[in-house]
Nucleic acid binder design. Sequence first.
DNA 1: GAGTTTGAAACT
DNA 2: CAGTTTCAAACTC
Length: 801
Amino acid sequence: MDTPERSKIGGTPVSKFEDSPVFNFINSLSPIQPVKSVDSVHSVQSYLPSVSSIFASPHANPQRESRFLIRNSSSDFSKDESSSDNVDESNLCTGVLNAVRLSRCTVIARESCSIICSLNEATVDPPDECSTLPSNVPQPEQYNSGSPNHNTTPWYGIKMDVKLDIDHAPVELVPFVQNGLDKRKSLLASESEFLENYPLEQNKDEVVGCNWVNLIPDNADGLLSFDSNNESEACKGPSEELGDSSKPAEGLDNSHKTQLDESFGPCVKNAAGDPPVICSAENGKEDETDHTLQILSGTCQKQVLLSDQTQKMANGTSDQIQSGHKVDSQQQRGMRRRCLVFDMAGISKKNLQNNSYHHSSSSSLSDEKMASDDKCSRPGTSQAPCVLPGIGLHLNTLATTSKERPGTKEMLASGKELISMPCPVGPFGPTTSGWKGKSLAVEKDASSTGNEVQNLHIMHDDASQSPVLGNGEELNQVSPKKKRRKSENGVESEACKRCNCKKSKCLKLYCECFAAGVYCSEPCSCQGCFNKLIHVETVLATRKQIESRNPLAFAPKVIRTSETGQEMGEDANKTPASARHKRGCNCKKSSCLKKYCECYQGGVGCSISCRCEGCKNAFGRKEGIVPIGAEEIDQGEDKTDHCERDKDKPDDDGQQHASVQIDDNHSSEGVLSVTPLETCRPSVKLSFFSSAKPPRSSTLSVGLSPWLYTSQPFRKSEIPLLHHKLEKHVNNVLEDDTPDALRCDASPSNGVKTASPNRKRVSPPHNGIELLPSCKGGRKVILKSIPSFPSLTGDVSEDYP
DNA sequence: GAGTTTGAAACT
DNA sequence: CAGTTTCAAACTC
């Protein structure tokens, strides 16, 4: 038991755990130690807050933390109690299971301090952010562990870690726990079931491990296992529920399945979509979560949020389980975020499993796949050795997977669901860059987990695109034109990118697929395509080259502030202007009224940054609307001018709102992510992320493009360098692409552009310039705040334009 | 489906 | 950095 688990965990955590007093403590634990567990939980909780505070990322929601805490404390505790109480009852099995799990949870929680820390350190350095994650872990691992770490990941990492720890704990710890339980004698009856479950967990691990194994080195397994564990936890919740419900063995089996599925994580679910069904069948709770997932996939993130909220509402009454479900759902959501990174892997894993773990996905792939794969290797299939590329392409994978294996289990279906998730919520079905959509989709998940609303908004953007994938085009490969038209007409968006490249070999930004960070797939009618899994190296190399020229080349062209919608409220929704085009358009003949215009295509108004002529962009004219990006850009270019412009343009509520939203986003994010260490990064993240400038660098890149991940794995040792690079990069980005507003902020702070969230918000007093009442000091505040970070750069004194 | 238009990307 | 070319999407017929 130990070995596999250890291998899964990556060794360090497990070994530590064994050696750690915690392990002994666990063994010594009496079956009825919920209280202790609670204590441990409390300790954990106490620990968590710090962590959360540290990691607080825009994505990471305080809610999550709270939920998490709640779950640990209340849910677990109650569970423990309930479990203990139930032990006597016929539900011993379930109760025992619950108790065991609870104990696990507690143990895990306890470990979380040690293990989590280690894990976090190893996998993700919470404070350090994403970049840190990669440090120790091999690239694949990074991906696995929540590669996307960038902003979200770290949070997740932390939070997830906790959860993960819990999850993992069961797997790894379970044996220990079992032993303790056995010693305690009270759990004997439960053991049988537990063993059953345990095998399941093992299976999970195996599944995960197998898949990951292919992709990831042994060390990575640990990370993977964690994620899987996290997912498993979600499953556990249900399993517990099963226990509670005293469902028959089938339930266990189902739970096992669900666990397995979950083990893959929401990613899998998201990608595959299978799990939801299973989960639903298994547990009502899970059903809820699953439903949420489905809903997300099916409809929109908002729905998800709603579902979550509703769940909370419903669950809020008491049930630990409910809380657990919520947590689970959240976890799953969190998983989804990871899914960005993991989705591919998860899918690949499933595929592998399906394929009998043949690393060569193509070979292993069923004939169907093969046929489908003809054009392009799909990430899902790819997994094998290259792993990274496949992972990177998860978006594509999702799309492809759905397409590829319509027949293959639910994976495909799930994948579709996931894809569909992003659905076309946005007013503009298709955003400009498919990449965005994809990346966004990922982020959406993540965001959904963390900041529900805000994230949702972001997701919407992406969703618009992603849905496309789900919708349809899947199997039927119509000519690219038709497909595109579909996307145009319908919800379908660019999510399913189909290119028709003939000369670029799909290795240039001309290629939508490539630009979107996705491998070309069947639907593509490209010629001489190199944007295939088979040519991963070429793709990556090309990508690097392009990135070397323009780090933001693969960043989403249109950035929408997630929060804007919320903060903005209806208005925000009404005004697509909340989003902006990264670079702005250069339209001359289309008047920005056709899709030739990227701004229009992206459903965003033109901004100052646009160089268009005769702009009539329905979403916002360059002049009239000072889209966030434009404003920022302008600020960067001409701070004073920009300010003046803003003043001059106070009219546009949309603009202001947008700016405000941005600010809010920034501020919120900044606030959340305030760790001293992170401050720098966070600020960067914020600036990039919020500004929509893709954080090319390690942190940001995660969410963005799959390839980026692969291309830029970071190691702890590299962290310092990363910081350095980030700073430089950030500066560059800010200079180059970052909105001027950011620049303004950043520019003053020459060194690190760390913005303390506090300051962002704190810095209310803006120069008269800035502040249009409407602006609410959003941007400007942010700007100020960003530079304000004294800590890192020491540029305390910033200047506001 | 073929051809044209358009503007981004790439190149010089 | 500006101008030109290349490219593929968007659009029209």
